[in-house]
Design a protein around this nucleic acid. Structure first.
Lengths: 234, 234
DNA sequence: ATCAGATATTGAACGCCGTGTAGTTTCTAT
DNA sequence: ATAGAAACTACACGGCGTTCAATATCTGAT
């Protein structure tokens, strides 16, 4: 882990690696996840497809890297939007998070499909990849937002959860950041995540737009209903 | 439209067409949407890939037919589950619809992806295909369920909609079946649709299971929260 | 019974794709 | 200057959707 400046070779390698990803992102935006073809990338870079294998062992590795980048970009955006509002305005923070989630998806429909849909033919995500990690980060962030609404009104006896009901990484993250929160808060956060995901996914995949003219408005109403049901309204 | 018995040729043609779809569905279930390959289908049927073009002009046409079948199967199931409860129990009807939606998705994950996700490489749904039609049917059904909760408590001034805000076919369907319902009910139905879709989509695509052990329980809680917020609880 | 025409099917070809594997060039570090 | 590593080319393989001329099969009328 010495932090010496990279040799020229290493620098070129990093540049090329970055360029591959950049070109792949352009192709992704232009033609969707399936347009990420090694031959197409190589063609744009005036290279041979085989040469790319010096940089990524396989196509799936490249896809994995792209997915990680996209997921990170999404989480960064939602958290930045959230943190633009003070901790004293939990409703605004949750609304901002949700709106950022949708606007990112609308801005990067191909990226959304890459992260949340079938990425590409035959691709299977690696075991402990970066995607579940980013998902945990997103969920932990949401849990923080939901935490502001705790304890929740209208809770029933069915809302008893155990930490074992969730991914250990996620549970650890939440327990560290919000020590006083019960595991049921994580369940609520996951449900909130799903609630936001639903309309956005339908919209990105074109199912909503064929039924309603203004998906953004529906989404806004849904978010407002959400904060209301959490008792976060001012 | 004479209803004579089909000639032997026509019968064979129908049989072959059906067999193609059947084999395609098997491949779909076995290997996901991308496994629907004309060559693979032909191989299983001991045919040539080219011969399939006598039955479907292109691969996309076959995918479209499969999508229509799947969507129909989904809507049939949800409506049957709903109608297993009397009109006097709107909460039970809505819960049944939602649970049927999820159980169908869990039973046919590949079908769910086919209908709601990226179906397959390069495939684009036809303009006025059967998918929007089935979606309208599903939404109209949901609107009927939501209608039982009308007029909604907690409605804000932002809930004013016009019939022009929705797809004409959907609007016509709803106006015919529920003449007394305002267009805002359709907006609510679409939101309910999205709310159900969210957790199910996350689960089918593997994002939920990596975070929580029991997605079904989360979904159940979400449905209960939904009926509660609609004021449908007994 | 025969045979023209419709229908169904084949097999080869084209151009894509991802994945590998030599063999060769280019550059870096010494 | 040169050994060795890194990067790249060229090519092969199998799979894919699609097209098309040629062929096999069946049908209906003669």
């Amino acid at each position: 882990m010495t932090n010496t400046t990279p040799t020229r070779r290493e620098q070129l390698r990093l540049d090329t690696t970055a360029e591959i990803k950049r070109v792949a992102l352009v192709l992704l935006a232009e033609g969707g996840p399936d347009a990420i073809a090694l031959r197409a990338i190589a063609r744009r870079m005036r290279m041979t497809a085989g040469a790319l294998y010096s940089y990524y062992a396989t196509r799936d590795d490249l896809i994995t890297a792209l997915t990680r980048d996209m997921y990170t970009s999404l989480v960064d955006r939602t958290e930045a939007a959230r943190d633009a509002h003070p901790a004293g305005a939990p409703a605004a923070r949750l609304l901002a998070w949700g709106e950022a989630f949708r606007s990112w998806a609308v801005d990067h429909p191909a990226g959304f499909r890459l992260v949340y849909g079938d990425p590409v033919r035959g691709y299977r995500a690696p075991e402990g990849g970066a995607a579940p990690e980013a998902a945990s980060r997103a969920c932990a962030g949401l849990t923080g937002l939901v935490a502001a609404a705790w304890p929740l009104p209208n809770r029933g006896p069915e809302d008893d959860y155990d930490w074992d009901d969730f991914d250990p990484g996620l549970a650890a993250l939440v327990k560290e950041k919000f020590p006083n929160l019960p595991p049921a808060a994580v369940a609520l956060a996951l449900r909130v995540w799903g609630r936001m995901h639903g309309l956005v996914a339908l919209e990105v995949y074109g199912h909503l737009r064929s039924q309603a003219k203004d998906p953004a408005r529906l989404y806004r109403a849904e978010l407002r209903d959400l904060t209301r049901s959490l008792g976060l309204d001012t």
